[in-house]
Structure formats: structure tokens, C-alpha cells
């Protein structure tokens, strides 16, 4: 299970028209999809949201990965559904709210599945966010797959010592997490300490305005994508807001 999760979170560069877009265009596209998902108020609109998310995901050859991420958030979706039902929401309303959540997850995932941690860092710098904050954020994203791989290995090691994580009552199951979480946290702290030292040893923080090898440049493809995205989104949002 942890391995499947690790695979889902890992960024893999593919040569597709979506991966090749400027990260700012991808961010704008995600924001548009997010807004659509947030404003969808019935099953038809939600179907349109999934279709709108599906197009870039298919072009990015990442539909399967997106489905995997959606499957991982299924437990949380079911909880949303159950809570809504418990508080007296009608079945259809509860279903719409739950599917809306899945739509939001799918919409935001498009960005993370098609954008490398480096590109995220460039976009944040373009927004002139503080350098230390940008570095910390980008590093934490880069560390997610590493931590997931660590988690897999720790679980393997403890299961080899007889730990049965899915066994026992809920309290026992929570206690079963201790032999997994302690090595995970200790390793993460050790690794972050080592990284900080390695960065300082390579001059991090030596000057207040370091130079950068990368500059974000809009290409023909990016303008073409905007020419399709903006009118299509405007049309959909007008329909979603009931103005059409």
C-alpha cells in the first residue's frame, strides 16, 4: 500500500504537450479547474469538471495516476459523505458535496502530476516569495517521495520482525504505528540536518540575491494553450454561475 502511495506521489517527467508547458500556464489551468470544481453545484456540472480535468490529464498521459490519487482520497470522501448524511443532508446533496471534493482533488493533482518540484520553485520565485520560504517549500515537496520510500522500507523491516499492522482493536492498531513512525521521524530529522549542513557547505545564504540558471519564458505552445483555455473556461464558468 505504502509503495503504491509512493508511486502516486513521485513526479515523473514525460514528454507530453502538458508537461512541456510553462509552469505558470499549468498553474493558471489548475486554478481554473479548481474554480470550476468549487463552483459545481449539481451532478451535470461535476461531470463537466471531470471531463475538463480529464482532457489535460489524458494529454499528459497521467489519467491512471490521477485515478490512483483519487482512489487514495476515497476513504476521506466516504467520511465526508457519511458526515453529511448524519447531519441530515439529502442523499443527492451529500453525493454532490462528496464528488465536488473528488473534483477538487483531481483538479489540483493535475498541477502536481505534471509539474516538477524545480518548476514549482521557479513559479514561486516568479511571484517574488521569500527565498528561504520557497526553498523550504520546494524541498519539502521533493522529500515526499523519499519519505514514502523510507516508510515502505521501515514497514518491511518491522513486518519482518512479526509486526502485524492490521491486527487488533483500534487502540492496538494505533500503537502498532509507533515502531513505524519513530524511525520515520528520526530519519527525516537526521536527513534534514544533513541537508542543511550540505547546503551551507555549498554557499547557501552567502549572498542575499543569488543568481539563477533558469528563467521562465513563454513559448508558442504556451500562448496556444492560453488561447484554448481562457475561452473554454469562460464559457464553462458562465454556465456554472447560471449566467448562460
Amino acid at each position: 500500500m505504502a509503495h503504491v502511495m509512493a508511486e502516486g506521489f513521485k513526479f515523473r517527467y514525460l514528454k507530453t504537450p502538458v508537461h512541456g508547458l510553462d509552469p505558470r500556464v499549468k498553474l493558471l489551468m489548475t486554478a481554473m479547474l479548481f474554480a470550476l470544481a468549487l463552483l459545481s453545484s449539481n451532478l451535470y456540472q461535476e461531470a463537466l469538471v471531470f471531463a475538463a480535468v480529464g482532457v489535460p490529464a489524458a494529454l499528459a498521459r497521467s489519467l491512471k495516476r490521477l485515478l490512483r490519487i483519487a482512489a487514495l482520497s476515497l476513504t476521506f470522501s466516504l467520511m465526508i459523505f457519511a458526515v453529511n448524511m448524519l447531519f441530515g443532508q439529502p442523499l443527492l446533496e451529500s453525493a454532490v458535496i462528496t464528488i465536488r471534493f473528488l473534483g477538487i482533488v483531481a483538479a489540483t493533482s493535475v498541477f502536481f502530476v505534471t509539474t516538477s518540484p524545480d518548476e514549482i520553485e521557479y513559479v514561486m520565485r516568479w511571484f517574488r516569495l521569500p527565498r528561504d520560504f520557497v526553498f523550504a517549500f520546494a524541498t519539502s515537496i521533493r522529500f515526499v517521495p523519499v519519505l514514502m520510500m523510507d516508510l515502505t522500507q521501515i514497514i518491511d523491516a518491522q513486518r519482518s520482525r512479526g509486526l502485524e499492522m492490521d491486527r487488533g482493536n483500534p487502540v492496538r492498531r494505533i500503537r502498532n504505528l509507533i515502531p513505524v513512525l519513530i524511525p520515520l521521524i528520526v530519519n527525516a530529522l537526521v536527513r534534514s540536518g544533513e541537508l542543511a549542513e550540505a547546503m551551507e557547505a555549498r554557499g547557501y545564504g552567502a549572498v542575499s540575491r543569488p543568481t539563477s540558471m533558469h528563467a521562465l519564458l513563454m513559448k508558442k505552445n504556451d500562448y496556444a494553450a492560453l488561447l484554448v483555455l481562457v475561452p473554454a473556461w469562460s464559457l464553462l464558468i458562465t454556465y456554472f454561475l447560471g449566467l448562460l
Binding site: Q153, I154, D156, A157, R159, S160, G162, I178, P183, V186
Partner: peptide
């Protein structure tokens, strides 16, 4: 299976807690 086949992993820090 582990009761009969004991496995010691490469990284000790992955099991110590």
C-alpha cells in the same frame, strides 16, 4: 514466514525505535 526466516535489513536506522 518471518518466524522461520529472519531478515536483517541493510539500514539499521529503519528498524530501531
Amino acid at each position: 514466514l518471518s518466524r522461520r526466516v529472519g531478515l536483517v535489513f541493510q539500514n539499521s536506522d529503519h528498524q530501531i525505535f
